[in-house]
């Protein structure tokens, strides 16, 4: 039994969700290898070699891996799989993993299992369905199990004390059917939404994009990330990548503060695994109060500045 973790990185840094995937891979038992494919990824290889639980790093470098296009990475993973015959192939359930692994699975003629939250045994996994309203325990009898791992459901692997060896693998020949043009990431000094310890989220109750400044001020005091409900995103208050929910990001921070969010099922799906949930809403009937540990029925335009002020003291 052995597992291949496909590392997500930008040639400079490892994406944190890979560490959660490594933890899941370790839980499966057996040897854990990591595949790093990129244009110039020596830094990332060095980073992974210190991660606990990784035995071997397979490195493939080629210009065609720019932008991590699935059309280019799939032949590489298939070649690596042919050489090492892993029993499991996994990656984080991020845009990268969700884009790539089903393609690999189809080529192997196996059914992949997406976004797992628990490993019962090497062939049985738990995942959420219907936006987290039900759990499905899946027994996967495929020869190779292809999995994506929900980051918030597994602790990140320790980034020190590991001693993985690295080995070069031959790059696959370029497929040349797709081209990566550009990326525009929203720049922010705040912590990343899915890995932040504290998340402050705003909904339609904020009434405008400008009013999100109230949340940014509060978040900065608490070193928190800022999220939003789909209603706020649809109304154009903030960009889509801030969306927490079934169709946005799944978060499970220590503390989740929902401001002016009524609590549609689709939003609850993305945040109900948070350790402590605080809700501020002026409507006492809002469904968000059903999942909240602490609810404050108040006008957010008064309550939020007061909270920020209190943190100043």
């Amino acid at each position: 039994q052995s597992t291949l973790v496909v590392a997500e990185h930008n040639n400079d840094k490892l994406t944190p969700i890979t560490l959660n995937a490594i933890t899941a891979a370790s839980q499966l038992g057996g040897e854990v290898s990591c595949l790093v494919a990129g244009t110039d990824c020596a830094k990332v290889v060095a980073e992974i070699s210190a991660v606990q639980g990784v035995k071997k790093i397979l490195v493939a470098q080629h210009d065609s891996y720019k932008g991590s296009l699935p059309e280019e990475l799939t032949p590489l993973i298939l070649a690596v799989q042919k050489q090492f015959s892993f029993t499991h192939i996994c990656a984080g359930s991020s845009a990268f993993g969700k884009n790539l692994l089903p393609r690999v699975a189809a080529k192997l003629d196996v059914a992949p299992v997406s976004d797992i939250i628990e490993i019962k045994s090497p062939d049985t996994f738990v995942r959420t369905i219907y936006a987290g309203n039900a759990l499905s325990t899946v027994k996967c009898n495929e020869a190779v199990k292809v999995l994506t791992v929900r980051g918030t459901a597994f602790e990140p692997a320790a980034t020190e004390g590991g001693s993985a060896s690295s080995e070069d693998v031959a790059a696959s020949s370029p497929a040349g059917v797709s081209e990566w043009l550009e990326q525009c990431l929203t720049k922010s000094d705040r912590p990343e939404l899915t890995s932040a310890k504290v998340v402050v989220s705003g909904g339609r109750g904020l009434k405008s994009g400008d009013n999100f400044k109230l949340l940014f001020d509060l978040a900065d005091k608490m070193n928190a990330a800022v999220g939003a409900s789909r209603a706020a995103v649809d109304a154009g208050y903030c960009p889509n990548d801030m969306q927490v929910g079934q169709t946005g990001k799944m978060v499970a921070p220590e503390l989740y503060i929902a401001v002016g969010i009524s609590g549609a099922i689709q939003h609850l799906a993305g945040m109900k695994d948070s350790k402590t949930i605080v809700a501020i809403n002026k409507d006492p009937e809002a469904p968000i109060f059903q999942v909240a540990d602490y609810g404050l029925v108040a006008d957010l335009f008064k309550a939020v500045p007061e909270m920020t002020e209190a943190l100043n003291k």
């Binding site: 059914a111 759990l135 909240a292 609810g295």
Partner: peptide, 22 residues
Amino acid sequence: TSRRRGRYRGRRSARREEGTVY
């Protein structure tokens, strides 16, 4: 032919009922 089988469990949608401050 499918080689996967699933079992399903419901999930509580509400966690706590009390604690709202007015």
